[in-house]
Amino acid sequence: MSAIVWTAAVSLAAWCWLLLCQGFFWRTDVRLPPRRDPGRWPPVCVVVPARDEAAVLPLSLPSLLAQDYPGRAEVFLVDDSSADATGELARELSRLHGGLPLTVDSPGEPPAGWTGKLWAVRHGIALARARAPEYLLLTDADIAHAPDSLRTLVAAAHTGDFDVVSQMARLRVDSLWERLVVPAFVYFFAQLYPFRRIGRKGSRTAAAAGGCVLLRADTVETARIPDAIRQAVIDDVALARAVKGVGGRVWLGLADRVDSVRPYPRLNDLWRMVSRSAYAQLRHNPLLLLGTVAGLALVYLVPPASVVAGVAMGGTTAAVVGAAAWLVMAATYAPMLRYYRQPLWQAPLLPFTAFLYLLMTVDSAVRHYQGRGAAWKGRTYARPGALPDEG
């Protein structure tokens, strides 16, 4: 039992460190910072990359067209070689709903060395540049915005002098698997990239949420976005790093009224979402993969295993220490469950969800070595660096 007790004690120590020293990642009160209306509302262009999004556009695009923005604003939807009439549907929605001006265009297939989304973003930014915007809002085709979303984002960026203001859209949690997996997805992301650290001056922690990113247009030029990150599969984190790399300021927090309308009803849908980029997050490094698997097991699986082993083998100390680690884990997860309006009894189930994520991460690595990694909507992307750098 001594080995089990010591392992449980290390897990408990890790949880105490995460609770107090990891940027208070578990708190969910990082929302849009204090803001005031600017004296003059700057012109804004909204860029929406879209590939085969006909199923969700009726729920998302009208919310962008209906933005109540006091300044000049328009929307550019870039149809990334869709096979489901995404572009035609976008034009029809604009005719039906009116609102902000909409331009729909397509750049064709991306060249080698570019992901499809970033190639579409590049094309959208090029179209927007002719309108001389001061800000660009990059938002995904499955994101629905409250009518004042653009106004509040611009006011927050202006007031805080941020180069990037990004909101983590509230993902859908309707199905059983969504309720089990989605809150943990955001929880794990915040654990890797504590939101409080991202917005702190001088902090090197950088991340954004790709579904909703407001950017200063001059920062786009300075940081060479998206050209500098054209191969990135996890493009939102790469974008934030590029901005911080040129001295820009980034803010990231949870959204109140920016929502993803994309459904992930089955475990397989969520599995593909996570596994397509998990190994890229580890820079395709086998040693980082082994370390991640070991870390997930120690932090998330050891506590319940210690409780079971202690009860089965009569080891009270192992059971108590494991239960303490499990309790801290559940307590840090509870705020995210409240944010997603889920019952708190789900908090002790986090080890099971973490085990699923462990399997997804391993599967992501297996797919990578089978040549099926980073596959999304009919495209498979090479590992960054595997293609020649075009400068």
Rank of each mutant, 00 (worst) to 15 (best):
D79V: 12
M336L: 12
H145N: 03
V261P: 13
V243F: 11
L93C: 03
V302F: 01
T139C: 08
V220Y: 10
R262N: 08
L61P: 01
T380R: 14
L337R: 06
R379Q: 07
G378D: 00
D68L: 08
Y357E: 02
W6A: 15
R341M: 00
A14C: 14
S306E: 00
V104R: 13
I225D: 11
W376T: 06
R51E: 04
V56M: 02
L356D: 06
A13G: 15
D174T: 14
A208T: 03
R283Q: 10
L290S: 12
L89A: 09
F355G: 15
T317K: 13
G253P: 10
F188M: 12
Y340C: 07
G322T: 11
F76A: 13
A323N: 02
R122F: 03
Y300K: 04
A305D: 05
D256I: 09
Y193E: 08
Q281P: 02
S94Y: 00
P265W: 12
A330M: 02
P49W: 02
A207L: 02
L359G: 02
I125G: 01
Y135W: 15
D389P: 11
A312R: 15
S364D: 05
R129I: 06
Y135V: 04
Q370A: 15
A280R: 10
G39I: 08
A83F: 06
L288G: 05
D389L: 14
E92D: 13
S166R: 00
A365G: 10
S306N: 08
G210T: 13
R91P: 01
V321D: 08
P351N: 02
G199L: 09
H123D: 08
L356G: 05
L270P: 00
H97V: 05
G310S: 13
Q281N: 12
Y357F: 15
R216W: 12
Y357N: 01
A323H: 06
L282T: 07
P265T: 11
V293E: 08
I225Q: 09
S275H: 06
Q167R: 05
E109P: 09
V186D: 14
A190I: 03
E109F: 12
A386V: 03
Y333F: 15
P111E: 00
P335L: 05
G98Q: 07
P62E: 13
L138T: 09
D79M: 07
I229K: 10
